[in-house]
Computed example of a mutant assay.
Amino acid sequence: MLILGSGEVHQVLDGAEAEVLAAVRRAYLLHDRGRTALPHSVFLRFPEDPRNRIIGLPAYLGEDAPVAGIKWIASFPGNTASGLERASAAMILNSMATGQPETLLEGSVISARRTAASAALAASALGSSVPETGVSLIGCGVIGFEILAYLRAVLPGLATVTLFDLDRSRADAFAARCQARWPGLRTEVAGNAEGALAAHRLVCLATTAAAPHLTTDACRPGTLVLHVSLRDLTPESILSAVNVVDDADHVCRESTSLHLAEQLSGSRDFITTSIGSVLNAAEPFRRPGDRVTVFSPFGLGTLDLALADLVRRRAEPLGLGTWVPDFLPAPVGAASG
Rank of each mutant, 00 (worst) to 15 (best):
W182H: 07
L163A: 09
D249V: 04
W182F: 11
R152D: 03
D309S: 07
P77W: 13
A16Q: 15
S41D: 12
N243L: 13
V135Q: 03
N192K: 10
A159H: 14
Q11P: 00
A112W: 03
S229N: 08
L121R: 05
S129A: 05
S277E: 10
R186D: 04
A196L: 15
S257H: 13
I143K: 01
A330P: 04
K71Q: 10
I138L: 15
G301E: 03
A248Y: 01
M96Y: 07
T223W: 01
I3R: 02
G141K: 02
V244L: 15
R45A: 14
N243Y: 04
A23M: 13
I147P: 05
S95Y: 15
R313N: 07
R53M: 11
A23G: 09
D290T: 10
Y150E: 05
M91R: 00
R53Y: 01
Q11V: 00
G107I: 09
A68D: 13
G69S: 11
A117R: 03
P58Q: 13
V292K: 08
E194N: 12
L126D: 07
A334M: 10
S336R: 13
H200I: 06
V24N: 06
E194Y: 09
V130S: 03
I3A: 05
L202Y: 01
F298W: 12
K71P: 11
D326T: 09
S75V: 11
R177H: 07
D14T: 13
G337R: 15
V225Y: 03
V244P: 10
G141A: 08
G107H: 11
F164V: 05
A196S: 12
A120V: 04
D232C: 09
R201H: 09
L126C: 06
H250K: 09
G195M: 05
S265P: 00
A153K: 02
R114P: 12
L328G: 12
G266R: 02
A87K: 01
A22F: 03
L93H: 04
R45G: 13
G191E: 14
E262D: 01
G15F: 10
A211N: 11
I275C: 04
A27Q: 14
S257F: 14
D217Q: 12
A210K: 15
V244C: 08
N52V: 04
A74C: 05
A65G: 10
L57Q: 06
I138G: 00
D172G: 12
G107D: 00
I54G: 05
V135W: 01
P50H: 06
F76C: 04
G34K: 04
L155K: 00
T215I: 12
D247S: 11
L57T: 08
L121T: 01
T273A: 08
F46K: 06
V42F: 10
V294Y: 13
E19S: 14
L230K: 12
R113W: 07
R177C: 02
A68H: 10
S255M: 08
R170N: 12
L38R: 01
E188L: 14
P131V: 02
F145M: 09
G184T: 08
L30F: 06
V154F: 04
V324Y: 15
P58D: 14
L233Q: 04
V278N: 08
A193S: 08
G191I: 06
R86E: 04
N52I: 06
S274D: 12
A23Q: 09
S265V: 01
